[in-house]
Write a protein that binds this DNA or RNA. Structure first.
Length: 368
DNA sequence: AAACCGGGGAC
DNA sequence: GTCCCAGGTTT
């Protein structure tokens, strides 16, 4: 079989000479490793770094995070994406406080039971923070081994992942630097064994790589074809009054949970006419206790998520009647000067910014 | 197994 | 435009 001892030695030597200085590489506190690993889920290193510094400055330890207001936590996470990560992280920290007396557990069973910690993150914390021989197989590691071993099966299949976990476990056997093995494998995938145009001439494993031997590195790894994103049409109403605009908060679960937006209606097909849009918006605003009419069309824009595509059309609205009694508190009037103070749902931030510049223009016109 | 859950950088 | 990122949870 394969000489794991030699592979590991070459990998660690390469890592010692080529590793990047990253903020979490100077940390040993399991909480701080935990935070970095959650932020790095499906998120690039360069994107995480500023968020990581800000987060630890605001929440330097588990006690601070456990006691934080969810609203403030969300504002620190704003822009990173996958917002359930932040909620799960706080829940996890609170659980460590309550169940483990504030001390991070160090077994895979206990750590994996915490919200937001799956197989990868558990292995990363165990190996990096506790130096235990536990594999942490992410997209980098899958790619590296799919090439080293010429795995022609799609890497997003579970059997492939299990095989690679077993391989990493064998590499870690008898090694004193388990955390560095984990980080070195990912660093190799990030710097050398990159998705396109891998730099095989710089690779410490060039003499062992089966893909390079048969010049197959550019054809690996293989992934299953992702589902096509579904197109969703969104009609958005902008109701202005006294330099304020009406905003609403999205539900606590689901897409962009808990973030703020302008009252909107989703539909699978496009509202053909402005009258159609007005009818949809009138229903929506009625839920908020308001009778409106549509004045004019505003900007249109597209926002692409990984699994969904929003086609937004905005419409300026006007109050037609007084507030309907009994539903006063639905929605919040936001002064246009304070649009930065909300956690905006995706493209609604851009709409808000456009609104301010549009109002500025109108004031300028009036002045002439 | 497949769908859901963001945003952005590299090409 | 396409790919894919230090993935996890839910169905």
């Amino acid at each position: 079989m394969m000489n794991f001892k030699e592979l590991t030695t070459q990998l660690l030597d390469w890592y010692d000479r080529n590793r990047r200085e990253l903020p979490w590489r100077t940390e040993t506190d399991p909480y701080r490793i935990w935070v970095s690993e959650v932020m790095l889920q499906q998120t690039r290193v360069e994107a995480v770094i500023p968020y990581y510094r800000r987060f630890l400055q605001r929440f330097p330890d588990m006690r601070a995070l456990a006691a934080a207001e969810p609203e403030e936590l969300l504002s620190v996470w704003q822009g990173l994406g996958y917002y359930s990560r932040a909620r799960h992280l706080q829940q996890g920290v609170q659980e460590v406080q309550a169940r483990y007396g504030g001390r991070m557990p160090d077994s895979r069973e206990e750590i994996s039971g915490l919200p937001g910690i799956g197989p990868y993150t558990a292995g990363a914390i165990l190996s990096i923070a506790h130096n235990k021989p536990e594999p942490a197989v992410d997209g980098n590691v899958l790619r590296v081994f799919s090439r080293l071993l010429v795995i022609r099966e799609p890497i997003d299949r579970l059997p492939v992942k299990r095989r690679i976990e077993t391989t990493v476990r064998e590499m870690m056997a008898g090694i004193s630097r388990c955390g560095d093995v984990t980080q070195a494998l990912m660093e190799l995938g990030a710097l050398v064994c990159v998705p396109r145009n891998p730099r095989c001439d710089s690779c410490p494993w060039q003499g062992h790589c089966a893909a390079r031997l048969e010049n197959a590195q550019d054809a690996l790894p293989i992934r299953k074809a992702p589902a096509l994103p579904r197109i969703v049409h969104v009609v958005t109403g902008l109701l202005l009054r006294d330099g304020q605009v009406l905003t609403v908060q999205r539900p606590p679960r689901g897409l962009l949970a808990g973030m703020w937006e302008f009252p909107s209606v989703e539909s699978s097909d496009s509202p053909g006419t402005m009258a159609d849009a007005e009818r949809l918006l009138q229903e929506r605003f009625r839920e908020l206790g308001r009778e409106i009419t549509v004045l004019s069309a505003g900007q249109s824009l597209t926002h692409i998520f990984s699994h969904r595509q929003w086609q937004l059309r905005t419409f300026f609205c006007r109050d037609r009647a007084a507030t309907i009694p009994g539903s006063v508190d639905a929605g919040r009037w936001l002064p246009l000067g304070r649009i930065e103070s909300l956690n905006w749902a995706g493209p609604h931030r851009k709409i808000a910014a456009g609104l301010v510049s549009e109002m500025g223009k109108q004031i300028h016109e009036k002045g002439k």
